[in-house]
Protein backbone atom coordinates (compact mmCIF):
# COMPACT_ATOMS: atom_id res chain seq x y z
CA UNK A 1 0.00 0.00 0.00
CA UNK A 2 0.95 3.61 -0.31
CA UNK A 3 3.58 4.56 2.21
CA UNK A 4 4.68 7.96 1.01
CA UNK A 5 4.23 10.89 3.35
CA UNK A 6 1.70 13.01 1.55
CA UNK A 7 1.17 16.40 3.12
CA UNK A 8 -1.70 17.57 0.95
CA UNK A 9 -4.33 15.11 -0.24
CA UNK A 10 -4.99 17.35 -3.24
CA UNK A 11 -1.74 16.03 -4.73
CA UNK A 12 -3.52 12.72 -5.35
CA UNK A 13 -6.21 12.18 -7.99
CA UNK A 14 -9.39 13.31 -6.29
CA UNK A 15 -12.87 14.76 -6.62
CA UNK A 16 -13.63 17.79 -4.41
CA UNK A 17 -17.02 17.21 -2.80
CA UNK A 18 -19.32 19.12 -0.52
CA UNK A 19 -22.07 18.04 1.87
CA UNK A 20 -24.40 20.98 2.10
CA UNK A 21 -27.35 20.70 4.43
CA UNK A 22 -28.89 23.36 6.61
CA UNK A 23 -30.98 22.76 9.69
CA UNK A 24 -33.54 24.38 11.94
CA UNK A 25 -33.46 22.94 15.47
CA UNK A 26 -36.53 23.47 17.67
CA UNK A 27 -35.68 24.12 21.28
CA UNK A 28 -38.32 21.76 22.53
CA UNK A 29 -40.72 21.95 25.47
CA UNK A 30 -38.15 22.40 28.24
CA UNK A 31 -35.92 24.52 26.01
CA UNK A 32 -38.67 27.03 25.31
CA UNK A 33 -39.25 27.48 29.03
CA UNK A 34 -35.52 27.89 29.65
CA UNK A 35 -34.88 30.37 26.86
CA UNK A 36 -38.10 32.36 27.42
CA UNK A 37 -37.09 32.98 31.04
CA UNK A 38 -33.65 34.17 29.93
CA UNK A 39 -35.12 36.37 27.21
CA UNK A 40 -37.95 37.90 29.22
CA UNK A 41 -36.74 37.83 32.82
CA UNK A 42 -32.94 37.33 32.88
CA UNK A 43 -33.44 34.19 34.94
CA UNK A 44 -31.83 30.78 34.56
CA UNK A 45 -34.27 27.96 35.21
CA UNK A 46 -33.80 24.35 36.10
CA UNK A 47 -36.34 21.54 36.19
CA UNK A 48 -37.04 19.49 39.32
CA UNK A 49 -37.97 15.82 39.20
CA UNK A 50 -40.64 15.30 41.83
CA UNK A 51 -39.79 11.64 42.07
CA UNK A 52 -36.05 11.75 42.84
CA UNK A 53 -35.84 15.43 43.80
CA UNK A 54 -32.97 16.14 41.43
CA UNK A 55 -32.90 19.64 39.90
CA UNK A 56 -31.44 19.62 36.40
CA UNK A 57 -30.03 22.55 34.51
CA UNK A 58 -30.63 23.01 31.64
CA UNK A 59 -34.16 21.81 32.40
CA UNK A 60 -35.58 18.69 30.74
CA UNK A 61 -39.05 17.50 29.92
CA UNK A 62 -38.32 14.20 31.64
CA UNK A 63 -35.97 12.76 34.27
CA UNK A 64 -33.50 10.48 32.51
CA UNK A 65 -33.16 8.41 35.70
CA UNK A 66 -36.78 7.97 36.80
CA UNK A 67 -38.16 8.43 33.30
CA UNK A 68 -41.02 10.53 34.65
CA UNK A 69 -42.22 13.87 33.40
CA UNK A 70 -40.65 16.94 34.96
CA UNK A 71 -43.32 19.56 35.55
CA UNK A 72 -41.77 21.74 38.24
CA UNK A 73 -39.53 24.62 37.19
CA UNK A 74 -36.98 26.12 39.57
CA UNK A 75 -35.65 29.65 39.34
CA UNK A 76 -31.89 29.44 39.86
CA UNK A 77 -31.27 33.17 39.43
CA UNK A 78 -28.29 34.27 37.40
CA UNK A 79 -25.37 33.48 39.69
CA UNK A 80 -23.15 30.43 39.63
CA UNK A 81 -19.67 29.07 40.20
CA UNK A 82 -16.83 28.15 37.81
CA UNK A 83 -16.57 24.35 37.93
CA UNK A 84 -13.78 24.20 35.35
CA UNK A 85 -12.49 26.47 32.59
CA UNK A 86 -10.22 26.66 29.58
CA UNK A 87 -8.43 29.48 27.82
CA UNK A 88 -8.71 29.11 24.06
CA UNK A 89 -5.74 30.48 22.11
CA UNK A 90 -6.44 29.17 18.61
CA UNK A 91 -9.37 29.11 16.22
CA UNK A 92 -10.71 25.97 14.59
CA UNK A 93 -8.13 26.25 11.78
CA UNK A 94 -5.34 26.36 14.34
CA UNK A 95 -4.62 30.06 13.78
CA UNK A 96 -3.74 32.14 16.82
CA UNK A 97 -6.58 34.31 18.12
CA UNK A 98 -5.89 38.02 18.66
CA UNK A 99 -7.31 37.72 22.16
CA UNK A 100 -7.71 34.39 23.97
CA UNK A 101 -11.31 33.41 24.80
CA UNK A 102 -12.21 31.89 28.17
CA UNK A 103 -14.89 29.23 28.40
CA UNK A 104 -16.15 27.69 31.61
CA UNK A 105 -18.62 25.19 32.92
CA UNK A 106 -20.80 27.18 35.34
CA UNK A 107 -22.73 25.30 38.02
CA UNK A 108 -25.64 26.62 40.07
CA UNK A 109 -26.45 26.20 43.73
CA UNK A 110 -29.05 23.52 44.35
CA UNK A 111 -28.95 22.09 40.83
CA UNK A 112 -27.14 19.31 39.07
CA UNK A 113 -25.31 20.16 35.86
CA UNK A 114 -24.71 23.59 34.48
CA UNK A 115 -24.02 25.69 31.44
CA UNK A 116 -20.96 26.04 29.27
CA UNK A 117 -20.36 29.67 28.51
CA UNK A 118 -17.81 32.41 27.93
CA UNK A 119 -16.19 34.36 30.76
CA UNK A 120 -15.75 38.12 30.49
CA UNK A 121 -14.53 41.18 32.39
CA UNK A 122 -11.62 39.12 33.71
CA UNK A 123 -8.10 38.24 32.54
CA UNK A 124 -7.14 34.61 31.89
CA UNK A 125 -4.63 34.50 34.75
CA UNK A 126 -7.27 35.76 37.20
CA UNK A 127 -9.80 32.97 36.62
CA UNK A 128 -10.00 30.25 39.25
CA UNK A 129 -12.03 27.10 39.65
CA UNK A 130 -14.62 27.73 42.37
CA UNK A 131 -14.92 31.42 41.54
CA UNK A 132 -18.44 32.95 41.92
CA UNK A 133 -19.73 34.43 38.65
CA UNK A 134 -22.91 35.99 37.34
CA UNK A 135 -24.54 36.15 33.92
CA UNK A 136 -24.32 39.30 31.82
CA UNK A 137 -27.36 39.47 29.54
CA UNK A 138 -27.67 41.20 26.19
CA UNK A 139 -29.99 44.21 26.09
CA UNK A 140 -33.57 42.93 25.93
CA UNK A 141 -34.18 44.22 22.41
CA UNK A 142 -31.25 42.13 21.11
CA UNK A 143 -32.33 38.86 22.70
CA UNK A 144 -33.59 36.12 20.42
CA UNK A 145 -34.15 33.30 22.87
CA UNK A 146 -30.79 31.56 22.51
CA UNK A 147 -27.86 30.71 24.76
CA UNK A 148 -26.17 33.80 23.31
CA UNK A 149 -28.76 36.02 25.04
CA UNK A 150 -26.22 35.63 27.83
CA UNK A 151 -23.14 37.49 26.62
CA UNK A 152 -20.85 35.89 29.17
CA UNK A 153 -20.43 35.30 32.89
CA UNK A 154 -18.37 37.82 34.90
CA UNK A 155 -16.99 37.74 38.43
CA UNK A 156 -19.70 38.47 41.00
CA UNK A 157 -19.59 42.07 42.08
Amino acid sequence: MATEKITDIRHMLHWPGHMETDYIYTQGIAGEKFFSEIKENEKIYGGRCNHCGQVFVPPRLYCERCFRKIAEWRNLGSKGVVYTFTVVYIDIDGAKLDEPIMYALITFDGAEGGLIHRLGEIKPHEVQIGMPVEAVFRPQAERTGSINDIRYFKPQS
Binding site: P58, F85, L105, I129, I147
Partner: peptide, 25 residues
Protein backbone atom coordinates in the same frame (compact mmCIF):
# COMPACT_ATOMS: atom_id res chain seq x y z
CA UNK B 1 -25.99 19.75 21.33
CA UNK B 2 -27.43 22.15 18.74
CA UNK B 3 -29.30 24.30 21.27
CA UNK B 4 -27.06 24.63 24.32
CA UNK B 5 -23.51 24.15 23.01
CA UNK B 6 -23.11 24.81 19.30
CA UNK B 7 -24.19 28.48 19.34
CA UNK B 8 -21.13 29.14 21.53
CA UNK B 9 -18.76 27.90 18.81
CA UNK B 10 -17.73 24.82 20.76
CA UNK B 11 -14.78 22.83 19.42
CA UNK B 12 -13.61 19.41 20.44
CA UNK B 13 -10.38 20.58 21.99
CA UNK B 14 -11.83 23.05 24.40
CA UNK B 15 -14.33 20.52 25.66
CA UNK B 16 -11.41 18.21 26.49
CA UNK B 17 -9.56 21.11 28.04
CA UNK B 18 -12.45 21.68 30.45
CA UNK B 19 -12.37 18.03 31.49
CA UNK B 20 -8.58 17.88 31.77
CA UNK B 21 -8.55 20.99 33.93
CA UNK B 22 -11.17 19.58 36.30
CA UNK B 23 -9.23 16.30 36.60
CA UNK B 24 -6.01 18.19 37.37
CA UNK B 25 -7.76 20.45 39.86
Amino acid sequence: DPIYSRPLGVTLIWIFALEMHRYMH
